[in-house]
């Protein structure tokens, strides 16, 4: 019987993280945990795309520094982002003398990178692996939606792409939260076509991978202090909890969503944050620090991604989604 849950025997350690986020994220509920908060979401660059790659580059550089390592110590960078041809990550990696593996699973890229990084470190192929991802509200709007200055309204189920980047170093040695297991997600598509309602498109994928994780690892929701989804938003979280309950898992007590945590809902964020940067920023700042202080003992990160493109939406296709689960122990 095929198993989708990987148990890491040597338990790679998450020895350091770094996060960079925009001003709007900086004043949010978890703003004080973010390492670098920008005053200006252009980050001194001419375009939002350049700003996004600079954020990722800065997060990578800081994470290496925080780990007390040098570029030559890092076996590989595993990174991805939302822009076409993942230009932000690959262009950011021009700055480093480190092998690069580009990955894309939309907003679940962070947990995918942790999973692949965990395999490389656990298998003994790399001593240290750096996982990074990021997104930018304005560059994502340009690619997926409308111009910023267009006077249109957002529907109430919409979410707000996070401007931010996060990077983390997984290492065979050292101290820090341990990566104990990971479950590889499947592409799930229940036929939701509304690109403004990504929470409900992604909730079934999150449910599928979480149920598989619990079944294969023999753990129960009570064994985790926290089950963190990536960017389902408030509405998607509600559906996720319903779906899990239907499958016999009550996660009401331990579930939180990164998208719900990151903003004070004031303007048009509606259901909360989304984007690859959402789980990257929240996990690598707030949750990582709580894990370090052992306030959380076991955390399951289920970052969710909607695998659509603007072309597929225009052609009327529904939104396939994916989620990967990675479990950390302090």
């Amino acid at each position: 019987m095929r198993k989708r849950t990987l148990i890491f025997k040597n338990k790679p350690k998450l020895i350091a993280t770094a996060t960079v986020a925009g001003p709007k994220e900086g004043i949010g509920p978890i703003g004080e945990y973010i390492e670098t908060v920008l005053d200006d979401d252009l980050f001194g660059e001419k375009t939002f795309e350049k700003a996004e790659r600079k954020m990722i580059s800065r997060a990578i550089g800081k994470a290496i520094g925080n780990a007390g390592l040098e570029e030559r110590d890092i076996g590989a960078i595993i990174a991805g982002d939302l822009l076409n041809q993942i230009i932000s990550s690959s262009f950011a990696c021009r700055d480093f003398d480190i092998p690069f593996l580009g990955v894309y699973n939309a907003c679940s890229t962070m947990s995918e990178a942790f999973l692949i990084g965990g395999v490389l470190v656990d298998g003994g192929y790399c001593e240290n692996v750096l996982c990074a991802t990021g997104s930018h509200f304005s560059s994502a709007e340009r690619q997926y939606r409308y111009p910023l200055e267009l006077g249109n309204t957002r529907p109430p189920q919409a979410q707000w792409t996070v401007t931010g980047a996060g990077a983390a170093v997984l290492s065979a040695e050292g101290t820090g939260p341990k990566l104990v297991s990971a479950t590889v997600g499947k592409v799930v598509d229940y036929g939701v076509t509304d690109a403004n309602n990504m929470g409900s498109a992604m909730a079934p994928a999150a449910m599928e991978v979480t149920c598989t994780h619990f079944k294969e690892s023999g753990l129960k929701p009570e064994d985790y202090d926290l089950v963190v989804t990536g960017d389902l938003g408030a509405f998607g979280s509600r559906i996720y909890k319903d779906l899990m309950w239907e499958k016999g898992f009550d996660i009401g007590k331990c579930h939180v969503d990164c998208g719900e945590m990151i903003y004070n809902i004031r303007e048009d964020e509606f259901q909360g944050g989304s984007g690859a940067g959402c789980s990257a920023v929240v996990f690598n700042s707030y949750i990582y620090q709580k894990l370090l202080k052992k306030q959380y003992k076991r955390v399951l990160l289920v970052a969710t991604g909607a695998l659509l493109s603007s072309v597929s939406s225009q052609q009327g296709d529904s939104i396939p989604s994916i989620a990967h689960a990675v479990a950390f122990e302090s």
Binding site: D189, Y190, G191
Partner: peptide, 9 residues
């Protein structure tokens, strides 16, 4: 697609 779920929608 094969997974289309009317109840869910």
């Amino acid at each position: 697609n094969a997974n289309f779920n009317r109840n869910y929608n």
